[in-house]
Design a protein around this nucleic acid. Structure first.
Lengths: 352, 352
DNA sequence: CCTGCCTCCTTAATCAATTAAGACCTTAAT
DNA sequence: ATTAAGGTCTTAATTGATTAAGGAGGCAGG
């Protein structure tokens, strides 16, 4: 079965290729009778319709939006925050009738061919660490780009929240409740797979801008309240999973003196910290307060968290990229808010 | 800024287009010195690299896998079963270095251009109702296709579980515990948005093959145990959400006599039924048993459910499509198993 | 009969690359 | 001096479509 193209059909009918093309894509340009015959022959020969790649080439549009995640896809789909963002973006893509091309970025691997070869009209970059090679590759494509959450790339629209402000809001909440012995569990600061305590220098050196900003907010609020940040135990994770959160929880809760409030930068991590507290028979919020982030998995667990407009961000990213006119390079900050649920309360009274 | 192509660079350097192409894609075919100059000029002119569409056309490979869902994307991402499947497929795509092109299929709309124009090497179709127009469109593309869950398309590989057997397994579990008054809540039977009671005729006429099979399993097990199926209240939903499950739960639990066991075809629905039970102050499993499906959201809630190998199915689908050699059109059934947790128990004793 | 206007179709340029085959020059071996 | 072998670049065919411009024929109106 040789390849069937427009030309094959044209030859069969003794007409020109152009005519066959018109029969498919502009029926009014061709007599009904001939069109019928074209379709008949196409059917007979098993023609698969105008080749989309050739069509794309000629028309100069790919009909797809490229999507880049730092994490492997398997992991990205597991993160409720990412899923929320996806939903928003997908809705925008749907409205525009374009596909969403999800590009894999294998972990350590530096293969960026998928980005170089992606047949897309624009890129949406989500949470790439500072200086990730794929980002250069994307910018090299000279297509419209928006960046979500991180990193900020001058000259392209940026969508996200005011991370330091959001972090400070979370921290201030427990500080205002009276907590002074804080603990922090964070994921997504570095790319190196490190798990364990992180000192202030390492915290500051985080390669992921958004998380770095979030942490800066924690610290600023703590210092504002007179808490010495260097004394705050800070546990770093490499995977955003409930199990990882539990591990961090155990590490933090084993400290003496034990923290009375733990800040986490994802809800999933916070759930794990709650697991750890349960393991130790600690009452939440009586003996321990826990704050999550994103309001992605928090509701059922009664978790206090920071809500961010995931879906709105995704939808707006899609809209910017599909609008036709190139978007102005603005820094668009979306609202966030503190959602107080049942995982935070004033600290237990000190014993004397 | 005019368009920059290989030719632009070639003209600038007074060499042929072929040479420039070689400089980019086969460095060993060109002297180091010339290659350096090519790169220099490319940089200077702001060349974005070989056009992926043209490249795709020439090479005859798109570097992407098309993915089709019946649901809108926003909804698909919200379903934990779908997410699990995604993860498996994404991993396979990642390994092969190809992208995943997610194609939108707007709800009622019959626009199938996205499928016609998708630049992909193969399609993976997931859970399309019988006779969905997009399926014809996909088959018309004459590319490799695998179908997951439904519908079965002769001539193409099919991946899924033995739905009637899995359904029967779920039903048999509660029947063996002694339940005789069953209730059923199902989603994804029809495409018409109907919410409410469904009689046997309507149940049988379901356009989604997998769910139809699952239901057949329920009925077979019930009749095997001597339960009259026509007397089993059957509530149909159009959305797979916790809230929908709650609605179905209330409808079913308001029946007299009240069912002692409720079968649902998704875990999310089952959670909603548990909510309804809680609303009514019913003890689960003391007064009511609930069975979910998929083991996607069941663990934390202690839900008895049927586990299916979501990720494995996704991974295998990817492998089949990316293997190079066309896959044999087999019906691949993956294992499923009953996971008994805390939501099922023998029915309460009858009062006299 | 001539003109103008449709309708239907063809011609040919264009989109932006890849790559087998061949030309040309230099160097090394016989 | 002759031949072979490399290295470097060019020629030209190929991938599969879209579409502006133009031509041929039919038909109506002046």
């Amino acid at each position: 079965m040789a390849k069937v193209t427009l030309q094959t059909i044209a030859d069969r009918l003794g007409v020109s290729r152009a005519t066959v093309s018109y029969a498919f894509s502009r029926p009014d340009q061709v007599s009904a009778e001939l069109r019928r015959r074209v379709m008949e022959v196409a059917d007979e020969l098993g023609y698969a319709g105008p080749n989309p790649t050739a069509r794309s080439l000629r028309l100069g549009r790919a009909g797809a939006l490229g999507l880049l995640f730092s994490e492997t896809l398997a992991y990205a789909f597991a993160d409720p925050y990412a899923v929320g963002f996806f939903q928003g973006l997908a809705t925008a893509a749907e409205d525009a009738g374009v596909g969403l091309l999800i590009l894999p970025l294998p972990h350590g691997d530096k293969r960026t061919e998928p980005v170089r070869n992606a047949v897309v009209d624009a890129f949406c970059v989500v949470s790439l660490p500072d200086g990730h090679p794929a980002l250069d590759e994307v910018l090299g494509r000279k297509l419209p780009v928006v960046v979500v959450d991180e990193p900020y790339v001058p000259g392209h629209p940026f969508l996200g929240i005011d991370e330091p402000a959001a972090g400070a809001l979370a921290a201030r909440h427990v500080l205002e409740l009276g907590h002074r012995r804080l603990g922090v569990a964070m994921v997504g600061l570095h790319d190196d797979g490190h798990i364990g305590w992180a000192d202030v220098a390492r915290q500051r050196a985080a390669t992921f801008e958004a998380m770095r900003g979030r942490r800066d907010g924690y610290q600023a609020a703590a210092e504002e309240a007179g808490v010495d940040w260097a004394g705050v135990p800070f546990y770093e994770l490499s995977r955003n999973s409930r199990e990882a959160g539990r591990q961090a929880g155990h590490a933090l809760l084993a400290r003496s003196p034990r923290p009375t409030a733990i800040l986490t930068n994802t809800d999933v991590l916070a759930l794990g910290v709650l697991d750890a507290a349960a393991d130790l028979g600690l009452d939440v919020p009586g003996e321990l307060s826990v704050v999550g982030f994103s309001d992605s998995a928090a509701q059922d667990a009664g978790l206090t968290t920071i809500r961010q407009a995931k879906q709105e961000i995704g939808a707006e990213a899609g809209r910017l990229l599909l609008a036709g006119a190139p978007a102005r390079p603005e820094r668009l900050l979306f609202p966030h808010s503190l959602i107080v649920r049942a995982s935070t309360a004033p600290p237990p009274l000190e014993r004397h």
